[in-house]
Nucleic acid binder design. Sequence first.
DNA 1: CCTATCATGTAATCCGTTACATGATTAT
DNA 2: ATAATCATGTAACGGATTACATGATAGG
Lengths: 194, 194
Amino acid sequence: MNTSSLSPSSYVILGLLATCGPATPYELKKLVDGSVGYFWSFPRAQLYVEPERLVSLGLLTEQREEGGRRRRVYSVTDAGRAALMAWLADEATIAVELRDAGLLKLHFAGMMGAERVARLARAQTDLHRQRLEEYERIAASFASAGEGAPRDLSMDTLRMGLAYERLSIAFWEEEALRAEEAGAARPQSTTERA
Amino acid sequence: MNTSSLSPSSYVILGLLATCGPATPYELKKLVDGSVGYFWSFPRAQLYVEPERLVSLGLLTEQREEGGRRRRVYSVTDAGRAALMAWLADEATIAVELRDAGLLKLHFAGMMGAERVARLARAQTDLHRQRLEEYERIAASFASAGEGAPRDLSMDTLRMGLAYERLSIAFWEEEALRAEEAGAARPQSTTERA
DNA sequence: CCTATCATGTAATCCGTTACATGATTAT
DNA sequence: ATAATCATGTAACGGATTACATGATAGG
C-alpha cells in the first residue's frame, strides 16, 4: 500500500470521513468549509478527484446511490483508518513556513516609496482584521456547541488561528507606522532606486 | 504580456535580480538561501526552469558565458522591472493561510490518546525552537551588517518570523500541557473512538 | 412547465517536486 | 592524475487549480 503518496489534503478527507461518517463530495465540501477549511483549504474539484485515488489505494470505498442523482458516497476502510492513525502518530518534524505573499512583498518593498509600503501594510492589516472577525465568530459558535469525541481539539487550532491573526495585525500596524514615519522624514520620490 | 501567469516564486527571482543585479541560477540559489529562503523556499531546480519562462515572457534576458562553463546569466529587462513594481504596488488582498500540517494533525488528534497528542505537541515545540534559533542567528548577523538600499526591510520580515516562532512555541507548549493533564485525568486506551 | 439554483463531474494545464545525469574546478 | 566537490542542467511525474460542461431539484 503506497501510503507515501498521500498529501495533507488526502488526510483531510480521510479524517473527515473517519470522524463524521460516510459522505459525498458535496457534503465533504461543507464539512471542510465548516472546520479545517479555515486553515487548510483546497478547491472543490479536489474533493471529486482525490477520493477516487484513495479508493484505488484501498483506503476508501465508493457506493453509488441507486435512485436519481446516483451520487458517490465514500466511506473509510480499515486500511484507511490505519493510514490516518499512522499519519497522526508520526510526529516526524514537519517543515512549517510562514508562506505569506504579503511578507514577500514587504521584503522587496524597499524599491518602492514609503507611501506604497504604508498602503501595503494597511491593506494587510485590514485583511487580518477580517480574518480575525471570522475566527471570532466561529469561536463563538463553538462555545455554544456541545463537546463531541474524547476532547474536541478544533477549538485548540482555532486558538492558534486567533493568536496568529492578532499577531499579524500588530505586526502590520507597526509596519504601517514605520513606513509613515520614514515617508515623513524623507518624502521620497517615486523612482528611488529605480 | 501575460503577467497573470507569474507566481510568487517568479517574483522572488525578479526581485533578487532587480536588487542584486545579474546572476546565474546558482548564484540565485545562494541569494535565496541567504534571504527570502527562510520564509519562501523552493527547490533548486525551479531556479533553472523558471528563469527560462521569464525570458520567454520578456521579463528577463539570458546571456551565456563564452568560456568554460558557459553558464546562463540572467538580468531583468525594463518590462521585468515594471512587472515587479506592479506586483509590489498591487495591494489587493492576498489570502494568507496558516497552512501548518502540525495544526492539521492536531485538528484530528482527538482520535488518538492524550499521550500521542502530547508527543506531537512536544515535537512541534522542538521544531519551532530550532527555527527560532536560526532566525536569531540571522538577526544577529543582520545587526552587524550595514544598511543597504533606502530602508532595509528584510529585518522587518525577520521580526515577524521571530514573533511567529515564539507564538508557535508558546502554543505547542500549552498544548502539550493540556494533553498531559487530559492524559493524567483520564489515562485513555489506545483504541478510544476506534 | 420552466427557470434558477443547487449539485456534480471532467479535462486541460501548470507549478513545484523528485529523480536522474553530467560537466567543470580544485586540491592533494 | 584523480578524487572530491562544486555546479548545472533535464525529464518525468503528480497534486492542485482553472475552466468547462452538464444533471437534478425546487419554486414560481
